[in-house]
Design a protein around this nucleic acid. Structure first.
Lengths: 212, 212, 212, 212
DNA sequence: GATGAATGAGTGTTCATTCAT
DNA sequence: AATGAATGAACACTCATTCAT
């Protein structure tokens, strides 16, 4: 689910807007959010002029990407809460289940300090973020009730740890990133769980595994 | 311990060089490595020309900062290995003891892909990094021998997790960062330990705690 | 005739491109090819950005100027071959008839060695240059056939001498340059002709004539 | 013979001064007069500071090089006038006999307009130049008296033509430059002589001969 | 006097943003 | 509404010249 821009757009304009946001999500994920606007437009298959018609400056585009991403994440978290009988599983799925979620959790760390401030100040983002956080809060409490999540952690602890785990996947080839994530996640979950989990997946990582 | 530049410099030039690296370390930590060279020079209290005399381009400066950081971290890790009777404690101190270590562990994620390649290729950096990694490897194995560190993790797992924890301190005011780090670290250590540790420090974090 | 850039440009862009090349030809002739890019842009009446959109760096602009000049010279040489009944006259007109020709013949000596290499390597320039040389070669042989040009010179001799004569016009006020050129040219032509020509134009030059 | 700087220098300082001028002459000949001052100092085997102690700025160094060069040329012209029984031969030897002469004749064309003005204004250069020109003037008149040089040319014509011929040697490998010069010179001499000379040296030049 | 480090103005080039087509 | 050309401010880097050692 995506946050809608204030006004209705003609169908083709809407399509352009979506192409741009999609291209930006992809580009931000690969190269960070400060690649040339012209390049983003090229990747979206539109002219720069069109990009600027939809988003008056880079910050506006970034905002749209963040809104889009958080919106998607909220939808998934709600779905997980409904689908999964066990709160612990719903929580984990909410925080790591899909590429969109992974991007959303990494976003806050991609930007320069000034941009970060702007993002934090955006009311729409505050709204979505608030709903998302409430949703996760609910899951955290439920998991503590059911006795799977240790009682002395809060939602902030959980979110922070997952956001770090996902950031760790950057800068690595996809395959390696996945494997590294799986193991680190398992270790962290053992730290979060009431009782220690099963053996870690795969074998111990060497330093080579995480560097090249 | 700091990586020395290849040739002896006149005393004043040496002093300038050190001022520049120190300013760059500080600036990179705050604003990332792509702030204007002129700004770095200003922070170091020298002219741009001086900066460029010492480092022919931004990459050269970045390299010097990385060498410096890794060198410092290596020295600390060795000191920890000598001082601490218990390998577990030495390991933790090696990976989280000081701002320099924290910078060193965050460095790999600060740079653009092209710069990252250049850094990886530098022979001096490869050398220091190799020694550092060997040192940590030794501590990991010792900690597993003494039964404090779980047997199914490798040095790569440990280093990766600490590097993430330290990255998490960015973007937060120092106080908050410290507190968040302490708690996340305790949770991760519980995941890494053979047996569950004591209660986490402080109280559960809320979402407000990690966002503003 | 002017070498066309590979792709069609919007009318206004085409006009700007032409203004830039014209300004560059003029500026190179006056001040050599290494005046500030900003100055060239100013002379062309455009912003630096526009200059760089059309020519990604100074070398690209230089190349365009060289192509343009050689193209013009080729067109004139062909016209001269058609118009003039006598090959000797066609040859002289080809080599000295206009400012464009004069620039084209001086070009090889205006650039720094590195730039010169780049120019020589450009395929488009090689092509135009080849056609031009073939054309002049034809005229040289025709002039030798008709008995006006001495038989023991080659096209290289002729081109080299004219190129020197034209270089001699630099560094002098236009009036003086013209007069000096006319006389030197007449002397050289006497050296090239089968039979000695008429008296030289004007009176003997003193040293003052060529220095101030 | 070299124009002396106003004050006596200590022997070692004098030696440095000479090394610098010699290096500058060489460097100007190869790369033009606008290479970095630091590079000139390096070629001379001294520090920049030393260069600047002797010559307060680039123009001062250029001036010294021009003075040096003209002085040498004057000495050679005088020697030729004394040695050669025939004025025509003395004239030719004066204008093309040695590398120093060739440099001196090319110098005026190496500089940017502004520098050229400064050179022209220098009183010492005006003085040497005046003497040199008087000397050549004498030879020109003598050659016309003896009937070898055509009567309708002046010293200015002769000097201009030789200066062009020598400029033509730049930008070519030495071997090629020499051969091209010999032929062009012979053609020009045929234009200057009262009666046509013998066949040109070597064979006709093709275009390839003068371009690569 | 010699040296080479420090300075900062000058220039090439990029890129966010605006605007004519 | 879309396009891509034009603009100029911003930044990287160079080099003439000055000055501390």
């Amino acid at each position: 689910m995506t946050a809608l821009p204030p006004v209705r757009l003609r169908a083709d304009a809407r399509r352009n807007r979506d192409k741009i946001v999609a291209a930006a999500v992809h580009a931000f994920t690969e190269d960070g959010p400060y690649l040339p606007m012209e390049e983003i437009a090229r990747l979206a298959g539109v002219g720069v002029g069109t990009l600027y018609r939809h988003f008056p400056d880079r910050d506006a585009l970034i905002m749209a990407v963040v809104q889009d991403s958080l919106g998607t994440m909220l939808a998934r978290a709600r779905a997980a809460a409904v689908d999964e009988p066990c709160a612990w599983d719903a929580l984990i799925r909410s925080m790591s289940g899909s590429p969109e979620i992974r991007l959303a959790l990494r976003l806050p760390n991609l930007f320069q300090p000034a941009t970060t401030e702007v993002i934090r100040a955006d009311p729409e983002i505050r709204r979505i973020r608030g709903e998302l956080m409430a949703q996760i809060d609910t899951l955290v409490q439920a998991a503590q009730q059911e006795g799977t999540l240790r009682a002395d952690v809060g939602t902030g602890d959980v979110v922070h740890l997952f956001s770090l785990l996902l950031q760790g996947m950057q800068k690595m080839p996809r395959e390696v990133g996945e494997a590294v994530y799986e193991r680190s996640c398992a270790i962290v979950l053992d730290g979060l769980r009431t009782r220690r989990g099963p053996l870690l997946p795969g074998g111990p990582l060497t330093l080579r595994d995480i560097t090249e």
